[in-house]
Design a binder for these strands. Structure first.
Lengths: 199, 199
DNA sequence: CAGTTACCTTACTTGAAGTAGGTTACTACC
DNA sequence: GGTAGTAACCTACTTCAAGTAAGGTAACTG
């Protein structure tokens, strides 16, 4: 039999294998709870190999993230290419994004927000903050807007919270933007989409 | 002189002091790079005291987060209370949020997204993903929309990315929502705010 | 089939989280 | 004012995971 049973593998192949397994372990246990010994054992190789190829635990994580990053970029760029107008470009891009995260749940969860805290009390606590803000907004909306479904209101609230979160970080890079600017600015972008449409 | 030079402090006071210092250390060095020994030394107390009061490193982080959380809730609830209509309620809430993060930069950075990875290559990498998406959207917008400023476009792009990020997590809790639903849904909320307003 | 390279290992060091058990200063009551 | 009790505090340890030094072995190459 010519069963190629070699334990020794070429570097590139071993690297791919390591990244795949690491991605799974990071996603499942969270970054800090995942140990290099465990990953090494799952790969079927000893720990120094991981360090040989990725230098550090974070280097390994980095490789996992880069893989997802590249895949996401390819998906969305392709989707958007050749769209006839702004609206359809936006739609295609959004669709590609949501399709991607649907197909790469594991990989995505490695890099979605909490990172090292998935499943830990601290992560729950941070999430609780967003939930509190979301609830507040949802309550406001169901007070003021009658004709909308629960789901619609809920999603809109998530939407606002996410957008604000992000814009907050953006503001840190733009010192010239005051809180008033930020609030007014958010309104400009947001309101026409959220306001009653029959006016 | 009646300089009360007591090193011993009542528990409540010491706890507050510990939280304040821990918040600073976590924000500056990042969660995982911060050591309990260092925090203890800065407080002027030995490590077991931290464990006596907060049980674990994460417990201490939790206390920091809870403090910010409560402050944020109070601010926004107060701001929104008694608003005459939806638009002004939204505006007041947004303003309160942005004012808050302006005033609590340190505390906010403890809980804003990366958490344990602030300043590390992995955090940069994750941020790079968002930047890549933001750039893509901004490029689209400056192609299709003529009359808007760079800043306006940039902020709108950040906005979209943040909203999508958040909505993606929301989708994980709602299995009945397909990618198509998500994309269409995002469009519904978003488009009227982003579309040319003179139509 | 000998030499070289590249894959791989065992066995260590280092550093930080968390703990066991003892000590000191404030307080309340005689 | 002394003394018992307790709340605040400490030193010195264990444990566990990241990262490393130094060397072994399979596979290719002339």
């Amino acid at each position: 039999m010519t069963v190629i049973k070699r334990k020794r593998m070429p570097r590139a192949e071993r690297e791919r294998q390591m990244i795949d397994i690491a991605e799974g372990v990071f996603a499942e246990r969270g970054y800090s709870a995942a140990s290099m010994d465990d990953i090494a054992e799952l790969v079927g190789v000893s720990k120094p190999m991981l360090y040989e190829y990725f230098n550090s635990k974070e280097g390994l994580l980095l490789a996992c993230i880069r893989q997802s990053r590249t895949a996401l970029r390819l998906s969305t760029e392709q989707a958007v290419a050749g769209a006839p107008d702004a609206e359809s470009a936006l739609y295609r891009g959004l669709l590609a994004f949501f399709v991607f995260i649907g197909e790469h749940r594991q990989g995505w969860s490695v890099l979605r927000q909490e990172l090292s805290f998935i499943g830990t009390p601290a992560a729950e606590e941070v999430e609780e903050i967003r939930r509190q803000q979301t609830d507040l907004i949802a309550a406001l909306m169901s007070t003021y807007f009658d004709g909308r479904s629960e789901l619609q209101i809920e999603a809109s609230a998530e939407f606002v919270v996410g957008a604000c979160d992000r814009l907050a970080i953006w503001c840190e890079r733009h010192d010239e933007v005051t809180p008033e600017d930020a609030a007014r600015y958010t309104m400009d972008v947001l309101w026409r989409g959220l306001a009653p449409h029959d006016s």
